[in-house]
Amino acid sequence: MHVITIDTPDGPFTIIGSEAPPSPDGGGAAVLASGWTDDAASLVALIHRSLRPSDADPRPPSSATVLDDAVEAVVAYYDGDHHAPARVPVRQASGEYRTHAWEVLRDVAPGERLTYAQYAERTGRPAAVRAAAGACALNAAALFVPCHRVLRTDGTLGGFRYGLETKERLLRREASAFTL
C-alpha cells in the first residue's frame, strides 16, 4: 500500500494505492482510497479488510505506479479534464450490490447529476434507494468513484464525507466546463 498527498484547490487530497500485480480475480494496481484530507489513517480505515496489504509483506512500487497515474488524473481534473479520474483503476470490496453500485457510479459523466432514486434505477434496482445512498456514503475512492454527482430527490446536495462546500465546488467546476 502506497500513499501520497497533493495540494488541490479544494485542499489536501490523499490517495492510497496498491501496486499488486494483475491477478485473475481482478486484482492489480489500483486506487484503494482517496479523499480531501491529509489524514491517511482515516482513508485506510475505509478500505475493506480483504484489500489491505499486510504490513509484513510490503510491495515495492514499480517504476510507474498507480499513484503516478492517479496524481496525474487529479491534476488533469483540476486543469479541466473531468474524465481523467475515470481512467484510473479502482478496487473496492463489499457485498454484491454495493460493489456493482460503485462501478455504476464510475459511469456517471462529469456535469451529470443524479438523484439517489435515479442512481438506484441505474444499478438495476429502482427500489434500492437507501442501498444506493449507502454505496455513496461508504465509497472509499472519492473523485475516482464520483459519489459527489448524486443528489437528494429535491435537488439539495445531501451529504458528503469531505463537506458540502467541497461537493458544491466540484459540481460547480464540472457544470462550468459544459457551459463555456
Rank of each mutant, 00 (worst) to 15 (best):
H2C: 08
H2L: 14
V3E: 14
T5Q: 00
T5C: 03
I6L: 14
E19S: 05
P21T: 09
G26K: 02
G27D: 01
L32Q: 00
A33Q: 04
S34E: 06
G35T: 00
D38F: 05
D39Q: 08
S42R: 15
V44D: 07
A45H: 07
L46T: 14
R52A: 09
A56P: 02
A56T: 10
V71R: 12
E72D: 13
A76P: 00
Y77K: 04
D81W: 03
V90L: 02
Q92W: 00
A93V: 09
A93W: 07
E96T: 14
E96M: 09
E96W: 10
H100L: 10
R106P: 11
R106S: 10
A109F: 05
A109P: 03
R113G: 02
T115G: 00
Y119F: 15
E121P: 05
T123P: 02
P126G: 06
A127N: 12
R130Q: 12
A131G: 12
A131F: 02
A141Q: 07
A141T: 10
A142Q: 05
R149G: 07
R149S: 09
R152Y: 08
G155R: 09
T156N: 08
G158L: 03
G159M: 00
K167H: 07
R169S: 10
R169K: 11
E174V: 10
E174Q: 12
